[in-house]
Design a protein around this nucleic acid. Structure first.
Ligand SMILES: [Zn+2]
Ligand SMILES: [Zn+2]
Ligand SMILES: [Zn+2]
Ligand SMILES: [Zn+2]
Lengths: 156, 156
DNA sequence: TCTTGATTGAAATAGTATAACATCCACATC
DNA sequence: GATGTGGATGTTATACTATTTCAATCAAGA
């Protein structure tokens, strides 16, 4: 039920995400250029992961000149800054809920409504790392994505 | 160091995988046709996840007539039977190490040598499920992939 | 001003996956 | 053995995702 369209002011989500991004970039001396900012805003248009070509269509709808590299470059920057995440199982992108700090993220993706919620549970990450270590494996990056039904879609 | 090319008889891996597949399909009344069997064998050609188009090339190298649907259909069948896994972060496919029983699998993927080891740790899956449940989310499928360095590549 | 490096524009191409329809084959039934 | 049926495969076309390459532009800093 969290983040149901009827139950939260999504403008606030977008506004918070954009201000945080400004702050983060400024603090790091990175440039949040108009294209990058606009792509971030488009990613935040919903709580559903968005495909790169959907973003491209939106950029073009803005009247802006845009080709695939336009959006992939913006995404590359936003990913590097931790402002968006890539959802591997969907080939899609999602705004990060807590971009300030480096963190291991996990995603709960609803197959019904398409929303994705972000978790940041260190014990999931450490369970993976522990078993990896037993195998002599050093973990550098983790992809954890759960598919299923969100609370809202279950009751419905 | 496990499964280093020099340190195990890979023919045995392949043979075991194919016999198990035969048995599993027979028990279920499913048909492991020549294409399907050959694709499974090709997937098992190494312990590295293989892309669909690499499999396609191999099928063609056999002299067989093959197009993308040929390999994707075979993979669809093998995935449904639990004989192969899909590695989401690589868009690639890997033979399942324990295809008989249904299981939650996790992968340790070496960025250096490309090998992927399969884990089947229930506590990783249950940690995910537990946090999901707290969010009211019902998990149906999990994708857990760790990128890093395998034991062999670390010492080297 | 000049230089330099980062960013963006633009065109082409590579890589991954599915849709749609025809044909074939194994098997059950008559 | 002939016929009908459904699954499996063949074939072509297309959709979707991502990168390469080179040119043009822009934004500081010397
Ligand atoms: Zn919102
Ligand atoms: Zn839902
Ligand atoms: Zn082996
Ligand atoms: Zn390795």
């Amino acid at each position: 039920m969290k983040r149901n369209a009827a139950q939260h002011d999504h403008r606030k989500c977008v506004h918070t995400a954009l201000s945080t991004a400004e702050a983060v970039c400024k603090a790091r001396g990175e440039k949040l250029t108009p294209v990058r900012k606009r792509v971030l805003e488009l990613v935040w248009a919903s709580h559903r992961p968005v495909g790169a070509y959907a973003l491209l269509d939106s950029l073009r709808a803005d009247g802006r000149s845009a080709a695939p590299p336009t959006v992939y470059r913006a995404l590359e920057f936003l990913l590097a800054q931790g402002l968006v995440h890539r959802v591997e199982s969907l080939n899609a992108y999602l705004g990060c809920a807590h971009p300030a700090a480096d963190h291991a993220a996990q995603f709960l993706i609803c197959r019904q409504c398409g929303t994705a919620a972000e978790l940041e549970e260190t014990d999931i990450a450490s369970a993976i790392d522990r078993h990896a270590k037993r195998a002599g494996f050093t973990v550098e990056r983790r992809t954890v994505e759960a598919m299923g039904l969100c609370a809202a879609c279950q009751t419905a």
